[in-house]
Nucleic acid binder design. Structure first.
Lengths: 368, 368
DNA sequence: CTGTTAGCGCCTTCAA
DNA sequence: TTGAAGGCGCTAACAG
């Protein structure tokens, strides 16, 4: 039975105390180099791996990091997780998955979050798309001092460590692209307005129009719920406007809504991009499969995951140092400071495909 | 600071011993009902949650289950995980994620798997799409007796607990659908033939043809690598055949390949489904987004995840009972027996959309 | 039914 | 530079 060794076994084999073995395992400096080599050799020989549970208990903290994800439904989450697992690959930490079934729970959101803290399994938390959980996650950090990083969502101004994108700038990119193509009547299909990112994208849309000297036409703005049906409904409304009021271009707050626009366009026999140009937001996998392929604003999901996890790791690192090296006051000072730098906004990028201008079609097809 | 309680605290508050508290926490029967109620009340009041790390150490096994996933790239994995987390939701277990970056690792696959065993973090393992890891996962179960369930992949005859589908029957469903539509020249785009599921799907294809009294035309079979480019290449080859040899229908071993067929059809100006009918396998999310929408064989991914996790839980359960209740010999007997019933083959289902017969188009569109 | 006594395997003082 | 001793919070025998 391989691997059933304990530190005691190694100590016996090496003829030293358990303490010494523990020291070399934890990279403490105060060990005779010769002894260290001998121990390491034995460790390798017998394939010893320390019991993480035991060391978690004794050390007061585990090597587990929690990842709170809202749902697997969204392909983004998978992309983000991809980045997360890349980042964790060469660390000694492991990932504990907290999945929140979307329904039920309404009342005990707080309990579930608290459970994460109180069960003491994890040493830190990465919260992806917190959505309705955001406030509890924030409190976990603010009130309890638990190391938390939020990925890709934010309460108005982010108050805790956070990695995301500049939704406003992304929306401006989108609208500017349409403006550059000569469009003047540009519609917007909003996301759910209780989300900050929806508000930001809408703001970006408004600003881009204003910068171009265009006024906002309320008839060209509709809420689309971030899903296909919502996009469909919104687009149907646009297409049923009198011809001279119709938009010549649509900026959908996410790709899913844009798919709905394509449905509506097919129904109305509106040609995309000739009759109406279309741009989405996210760059989902499916956006190269729909016809025409969807122009969109790409979010760097994988990078978000990677940076988020790295940020969490660095927080753990610095808190470890601080508690041993610095006075309580100094700790507080440094925390304030590093927190303020713990807001990372990644860049979005414009991906031009056929849905905004026909010429792109041949390019993307040939790139297959 | 909420939740910093230990069993000792509860014991003090309730005026009983720690042991008693531990007993009610672990649902042992031998506790005075009155005392039990009192303890539970206090536990609730102070919001006590036992330290899982400590109980893992003391009890000799944790409440963590490992999930080994090959990559987040595939949307299936997300679906399966969805089922997994549904199943784990009302158990006291948590999920530990082992993610295998596809590359590197070639040499230390074994080490990584061994690490799972040896680090003792988890009590059992759910291995999703093991692919190249399969043999090591199998050995983990066979040689080390570690509780393992494989989801949706299998070495020739599955030798360890396993949940998946009947790929052969699924393929037959697909081909029979095409036969029923009157097609006689049905092509097949295979998956990578080193995968058992690809072989099975191919076998199902052959059998369905034979049952219909048709002979196999080697020109109508091509390997497609399970991806879009592979499907494209294969379809290009089919479409460049002399007209009378061309297939009137194509069964792609997965949806991705089928997307490639659509690309090729667009290039060749072949109309789907009028010139060639198309059916895929998997029912990916995107298959309702491509045009025409893709007829396909749906795999019940979520159910696989759910059943897989439940199977793992029941294995843990029974092994717990067996080690305490039965002799070593009896344990072995029961293990053999339950293992043999621990192979679950779920049903696939045929999803008819526009790519196989035009009439379906209006139906699916209207269901939006 | 309940409490007492030992650890689980490791880390962390403290003293040598 | 090393070792011995104590404890992390809980569970699992044992007795009562």
């Amino acid at each position: 039975m391989a691997g059933k060794h304990t530190i005691a076994d190694i100590a016996r084999l090496a003829g030293v105390s358990k303490t010494t073995v523990s020291r070399v395992l934890n990279h403490k400096p105060d060990v005779d180099p010769i002894t260290r080599e001998r121990i390491l050799r034995i460790v390798k020989e017998v394939g010893f791996v320390p019991n993480l549970i035991a060391s978690g208990l004794a050390g007061g903290h585990t090597r587990l990091l929690g990842v709170l994800i809202p749902s697997f439904a969204s392909p983004f989450v998978a992309e983000i997780m991809h980045g997360v697992s890349e980042a964790i690959a060469d660390t000694p930490y492991e990932l504990l998955l907290y999945h929140l079934n979307e329904m039920a729970y309404e009342n005990n959101k707080r309990d579930i979050i608290r459970h994460i803290l109180v069960s003491r399994l994890t040493t830190g938390l990465l919260s992806i798309f917190p959505g309705p959980w955001a406030e509890h996650v924030v409190r976990l950090h603010t009130d309890e001092g638990y190391p938390v990083v939020m990925v890709n969502d934010q309460a108005a101004p982010p108050t805790i460590p956070w990695v995301g994108i500049d939704n406003r700038a992304g929306a401006q990119q989108a609208v500017q692209h349409l403006l550059a193509l000569g469009h003047r009547r540009i519609a917007h299909i909003q996301g759910p307005m209780q989300y900050y990112c929806s508000q930001e994208r809408y703001t970006g849309y408004c600003e881009a129009l204003k910068n171009a000297g265009l006024s906002l036409d309320p008839a060209l703005v509709a809420e689309g719920h971030f899903n296909r049906a919502g996009g469909y409904d919104a687009a149907m409304a646009f297409f049923s406007l009198p011809i001279e009021q119709r938009p010549t271009a649509i900026f959908a707050a996410n790709d899913l809504s844009a798919y709905g626009v394509l449905d509506a366009a097919a129904k109305y026999r509106v040609n995309v991009p000739d009759d109406v140009a279309l741009i989405g937001f996210d760059d989902e996998y499916s956006s190269v499969l729909v016809r025409p392929e969807l122009t969109t604003i790409k979010q760097p999901f994988r990078e978000m995951g990677r940076h988020g996890l790295n940020m969490l790791l660095s927080m753990l690192d610095s808190s470890k140092h601080s508690t041993t090296v610095m006075s309580a006051f100094a700790v507080h000072e440094q925390k304030e400071q590093s927190d303020s730098s713990l807001h990372m906004q990644l860049d979005t990028s414009l991906i031009v495909r056929a849905s905004s201008c026909g010429v792109a079609e041949s390019q993307t097809l040939s790139s297959l």
